[in-house]
């Protein structure tokens, strides 16, 4: 009898202290311009796959998370200077970025990029004018193919550039392009094959934040194992999206 009460008491104290420790506030930095990964919905809130996934991860890790918007250009500098604690913005894990910041294990498996152009046009993918967002793996890839790269600050502007003829095609994550192509009513089409780029998408953290990284890694592993991540991927992306 006493044993049970004692055990219950210890459990209660542990739970209470765990609750107190949960008060750690983590500021989650995202771009808010990359549907369906992350975007600002009509309520003016950050929404998308990464919002749902990030909130779930924070809940499981017992963290109090706050969402912060930051434009893509300065998203890494503002992380290292401490304006927020994580980048969760569809950022592919690359060696180049890994030198400046750390990444968690990927929460989206390596997924292909693709070219999109206006329908009925003969596009020279290795010599034409190709649009991409600044400082993305796609921009880096175009620079290597020999095509002329035109960079834009937001993903939306890269699509607009193809529509108004400023660029022959756009290279971006296929998961981002697919809804746009599907809803364009035949105006836009995929050209060329899929381009495998990047080592999956992970959360970016400061290199000095090893503890937080371990917490998120544990939660991401758990969410992979119990199928939560797959369910979210299926909800926000198309059926072709690679799953875990």
């Amino acid at each position: 009898m006493w044993k049970t009460i004692e055990a219950a008491g210890i459990a209660a104290i542990l739970a209470a202290t765990a609750g107190a420790a949960a008060a750690q506030t983590v500021r989650m930095g995202t771009e808010g311009a990359y549907p369906p990964y992350n975007f600002i919905n009509d309520k003016g809130e950050i929404d998308g796959f990464e919002r749902e996934m990030g909130d779930e991860a924070c809940k499981r890790a017992g963290l109090d998370c706050v969402w912060v918007k930051n434009d893509w250009d300065s998203i890494i500098p503002n992380l290292v200077s401490g304006n927020y604690d994580t980048i969760i913005a569809g950022m592919s894990i690359t060696d180049e970025r890994d030198e400046v910041i750390d990444f968690t294990d990927p929460y989206i498996p390596p997924s292909p990029s693709a070219y999109v152009a206006l329908a009925g046009q003969d596009v020279d993918l290795s010599g034409g004018v190709i649009a991409a967002q600044t400082s993305t793996i796609q921009a880096g890839h175009i620079a290597e193919t020999g095509a002329t790269l035109v960079e834009f600050a937001t993903p939306d502007e890269t699509i607009a550039a193809v529509r108004n003829g400023e660029a022959d095609a756009v290279l971006a994550d296929k998961d981002y392009l697919e809804p746009i192509v599907n809803e364009s009513g035949g105006e836009l089409v995929f050209v060329g094959g899929d381009v495998p780029l990047g080592g999956g998408i992970g959360m970016g953290l400061r290199e000095s934040d090893g503890e937080l990284r371990a917490k998120f890694n544990a939660v991401i592993a758990e969410m992979k194992a119990d199928g939560t991540l797959n369910a979210m991927l299926a909800k926000w992306f198309t059926e072709n999206t690679p799953k875990w």
Partner: peptide, 30 residues
Amino acid sequence: LFLLGIEDIVYWARELGGMKTQAFDYPHPD
């Protein structure tokens, strides 16, 4: 102002004016 992380009218105009897919409640072209 947007350089300093403050959402000014130009930021919102660009964000609201951009093409919106069915992921949004009010999809519209550019």
